[in-house]
């Protein structure tokens, strides 16, 4: 479990990125921090692995205050996946994935064997192991990024808009894969995004943030959509602007689901598919 206790972050120039933020991210679940750019969500994420230290308040992993753990060893036991994957362009795919185990002193052969397993886990052909990042597509690079985040078998995975730079089809693919991997591995994931659809698709817990990392609402996807806490949340979800207000409309081809503007959002599956 990750716990934020009244953390704040202000900078010498007076800007206040985070003000008095508290939250618990339960173990084995995915917590999504969602908000517009500049709301402080990335700052919160980086407090967990001490890329940013809070000005006041504390961040806890289980019973340890992260401030008491040296940054470098702390980072090596927490997986981190970022936008554009952040791969090292001068290392082959297999070495990129094995970076942290190698830093931790795992023998090379074992680290490589594990890297190949991870490639399979994230849906990459192992024949790509000896390529360089520049020779992969954006989606493939992102998969390598996820595999690298998992390489040291961390309990915690931090994901900073990891799928923000790939096209929508690939993004949907990667989201599905992440859900599958999470069903297998049960990591404690903190996921940052500005895309509400992505948040609803991936989160067990959704935290909608306003400026200064004020928690506008926290709850399950069902809760935030069914009972938005205030105007801000409703507006962010697109409720009232037609975004998530869906209706059924009968057409000769079947029952369509349409949004508030009458634009088709999907088709009503008949008979309704069972929840997986």
């Amino acid at each position: 479990m990750i716990r934020f206790d009244n953390v704040s972050k202000s900078y010498p120039d007076g800007t206040e990125a985070v003000r008095d933020f508290s939250l618990q991210a339960p173990s084995g679940q995915t917590t999504v921090l969602v908000g517009s750019s500049g709301c402080g969500k990335t700052t919160l994420l980086r407090m967990v692995n001490r890329m940013v230290d809070p000005t006041s308040g504390s961040v806890w992993i289980d019973d340890d205050n992260v401030a008491d753990i040296a940054p470098v060893p702390l980072r090596r036991r927490i997986g981190y996946v970022m936008q554009n994957a952040g791969l090292l362009p001068h290392r082959k795919v297999i070495d990129n994935i094995a970076t942290v185990p190698l830093l931790n002193g795992t023998p090379k052969a074992e680290a490589h064997r594990r890297a190949l397993e991870l490639m399979e886990l994230v849906g990459l052909e192992t024949s790509m192991a000896n390529r360089y990042p520049d020779q992969l597509s954006g989606g493939q690079q992102q998969r390598v990024g996820v595999a690298r985040g998992l390489a040291a078998d961390p309990n915690i995975l931090l994901m900073d808009e990891p799928f923000g730079a790939v096209d929508p089809l690939v993004r949907a693919d990667l989201q599905t894969e992440l859900l599958r991997i999470q069903r297998e591995l049960h990591k404690t994931i903190v996921f940052v995004t500005h895309d509400i659809a992505e948040a609803l698709a991936l989160g067990d817990q959704i935290v909608i943030l306003a400026k200064g990392a004020r928690v506008a609402q926290a709850g399950s996807p069902q809760q935030v959509v069914a009972e938005p806490a205030d105007e801000f949340v409703a507006d962010f979800l697109g409720l009232g602007r037609g975004g998530l207000d869906l209706h059924l409309r009968e057409t000769p081809g079947g029952t369509l689901v349409v949004d508030g503007h009458g634009r088709p959002a999907g088709r009503l599956a008949d008979p309704p598919r069972a929840e997986s």
Partner: peptide, 20 residues
């Protein structure tokens, strides 16, 4: 981005200079 990601991976400052 590369500096940032290597820091997040847990490189020390010296390790990051020589290896990245």
């Amino acid at each position: 981005p590369v500096r940032l990601s290597s820091t997040a991976l847990g490189y020390s400052a010296a390790g990051r200079f020589w290896q990245v």
